[in-house]
Design a protein around this nucleic acid. Structure first.
Lengths: 234, 234
DNA sequence: GGAATAGTGTCTCTCAGACACTATGAC
DNA sequence: GTCATAGTGTCTGAGAGACACTATTCC
């Protein structure tokens, strides 16, 4: 039918159809002042130059080994974030109308990281995840889907632990779950679940305190077992 | 950096990078003789001409409105399947090495349909889902991931009902769940769950029988409520 | 001692599995 | 009646929420 057209570099030879644009977008979540936020950047280039949008970029076929690699490169180049975050493919948004440049594919990822790990640069903005402005492309849809996934997965995994430093108290972990889920969770049940299933392990003898008084809390970290099979359910 | 190359039709103007090949592959599941199978086709064209592989095809940017549309077109053109099936995006497989033609993206879908709805053509093969041969590309990986999703989702949804005709007995539904999940499910609990939550509704007064004797069973169909919010949990 | 925060014991309710029971048809 | 399949009632154990209790620190 239609002819493939010559391309400059690692050139697919038997391609019969013009390929759509292929990009990767990342919804990066963090907790700032007790509220879940998504990271957005002010766009430097058209389309939608000057507007806030999710960090994203073209797949570089000579540089990236796969799309997850593109996502990590985007976070490195545009957010100066190297590691320590959770990253997972979310969904692929595609079609003729989602990008003014034409038929496009956006392989969307979502990521979770603690606030302190994000270098504060001028282009970086944090948007409250439950109170989004109108964003370009279909970025609102992407964020809403990412939020559903984040909440769904948090209900049966240790994903929210990525919002905390390496060691934390059970109370902090509980608070983070409540913030992410946006609902109250019974503290006693939470402790039982987390402790019984050996999701965390006590850090030897260490303790910790808050401003005024109060009994110091045991410090925990995710157990080796949890880290190994992170994706598995609680 | 590098230049975009002219394309014939809806031409992306500001594309800075050569796009990877964009295809859609579909893992279509069905139940034949009580065993879950995946549909494979004998490939007509290279690469891997003559081998069995998942039905798939290029995204046609002048014809398909989005990737789900591509998936439906692939099923229509290559399997002669028009509707009556469940279809959902699974995952996007991408990278430099998965396709000998070069850096490629496969937006993978999975589908579920009853055996009788599949037109029997010479190219169509059904492979037992739990006993896969070596398939080209990363199609084994796609099928394994699709199976996980199918089983995961069947545990809390009415997905397996797509393997049955419009009306069915509770016993049939139960059997189909067991086959899909590959494990025994308590029949009494199953009835309670299915009935209490109004997932099905009795088809007025109708009954049904099997070969020899036995009490006839009530016929059911999925309730309007279930069909409306199909994705929701049981 | 009191205030503040950390952590536990116990009751109750729900729900799923187990399994013995009853129901309705063909013969 | 028997056989075969359909469908129900009831017990039990696991787990989550509710919430009152105890523990350990600072002052």
């Amino acid at each position: 039918m239609r002819q493939g057209k010559p391309s400059k570099r690692p050139s697919p030879e038997t391609v019969d159809y013009p390929s759509p644009i292929a990009t990767v977008d990342v919804a990066l979540f963090t907790l700032r002042e007790g509220t879940l936020h998504v990271l957005a950047l002010r766009r430097a280039a058209p389309p939608f130059a000057g507007e806030l949008a999710l960090p994203g970029g073209y797949v570089h076929i000579d540089e990236d080994v796969d799309a997850a690699d593109t996502a990590r490169r985007v976070l490195r180049e545009k957010v100066a974030l190297d590691d320590g975050y959770f990253l997972e493919q979310l969904f692929t948004f595609s079609g003729r109308v989602r990008d003014p440049r034409g038929w496009s594919i956006s392989i969307a990822y979502y990521a979770v990281v603690r606030f302190e790990a994000i270098p504060q640069q001028s282009a970086v903005h944090l948007i409250p995840a439950d109170d989004l402005p109108d964003l370009p492309f279909d970025h609102n849809r992407i964020i809403i889907k990412a939020l559903e996934r984040l909440r769904g997965k948090s209900a049966y995994s240790t994903l929210p632990a990525y919002l905390l430093p390496e060691t934390f108290t059970l109370r902090q972990l509980h608070g983070v779950y409540e913030r992410v889920m946006g609902e109250r969770l019974d503290l006693a049940s939470f402790r039982r679940k987390i402790e019984d299933q050996e999701i965390v392990e006590a850090v030897k003898g260490e303790m910790r305190q808050r401003p005024g008084a109060g009994r110091p809390a045991q410090l925990y970290r995710l157990s080796a077992r949890t880290l190994r099979e992170f994706d598995r359910m609680i």
